[in-house]
Write a protein that binds this DNA or RNA. Structure first.
Lengths: 155, 155
DNA sequence: TGCGATTAGATCGTGTGCGATATAAATTGG
DNA sequence: CCAATTTATATCGCACACGATCTAATCGCA
């Protein structure tokens, strides 16, 4: 018998610091704050940087393609992309073969930004305090977690 | 020689799916989406839920105490707390012994909410697809990461 | 062929996060 | 004891996220 004896005013005793969700949430903010310092030079925010990373990987993608990689919808991406366009880093134009789609492509300034951003990954790695192997392992854990959460449907 | 031969248009070849920051970022959003379904019944958002968790841990804390636990400042917390107050879950009043501080306490409805939220942790655990041990291990990794990022200052 | 259904983006409203700044209360050093 | 500084919170502006809804273009199929 025994085990956890009555200490249950109402629900299970949830402790903030034992919640994985909070660890992820707080780590996300911490990353954002470090990135902000590094990205201020480039005049882009962290989500904008992620879009640029995708375009540096492969130029000329639709809003939907970018969204499926980032797990974001057009309601988030459209304004963000308009800001990148206003900054002169990308161009947005309707695909002539399917006018529903908007294709995003790098401008010259957007392509050139890649060089200026070249030092960012090393700074982030240093700030993370992790070896490449540790980072890979943690990434594999959070990626599996994300996949499980994404596929969760209550019944 | 060789090794990585020239494949360097400009910077290091950053791939979105190899970025730990992005894994964390996306996992955070995924958590948020799962929580949203569970918390809609309670009429609170995920950050509001975190505040409630802290108050269920210990009632009557100042804005600053809550902020230091959540790594948030008053510019984020003040409006959030006002919404919780408008919902009737908390009360905000100035500390008579130091009028600069605002003490946050649970109302009866706020204390009662704990029972309604009792099923949330188990749902989240199920959605995460992780055993308790796996979750603990991942949490320890992201917590160390957050600590490293928090202490990073590019001189 | 034509019309209803689907698809791709855009728009709107709400709620965070956070930098910058404001305000008011407490503390401190001369 | 009081002016200068520090501390606690609030306010403002901007940029995400995301649910809900809208519009326009394409598709499916009778």
């Amino acid at each position: 018998m025994a085990g956890k004896t009555m200490e249950r005013p109402d629900g299970p005793e949830v402790k903030l610091d034992e919640l994985l969700c909070f660890g992820i949430y707080a780590a996300g903010h911490a990353f954002n704050r470090v990135y902000k310092q590094l990205l201020d030079d480039l005049n882009v925010t962290y989500p904008q940087y992620l879009v640029m990373v995708l375009l540096w990987e492969r130029d000329d993608q639709t809003v939907g393609e970018l969204g499926s990689r980032l797990f974001l919808e057009s309601n988030t991406l459209t304004p963000l992309l308009k800001r990148l366009e206003a900054l002169g880093y990308i161009a947005r134009r309707r695909d002539p073969s399917d006018e529903r789609q908007v294709r995003i492509s790098l401008t010259e300034a957007g392509a050139a930004l890649r060089a200026k951003a070249a030092t960012v990954p090393a700074c982030i790695q240093a700030a993370s305090g992790l070896t490449a192997a540790q980072a890979r392992q943690l990434l594999s854990g959070v990626t599996a977690l994300r996949a499980a959460l994404d596929s969760y449907e209550p019944e």
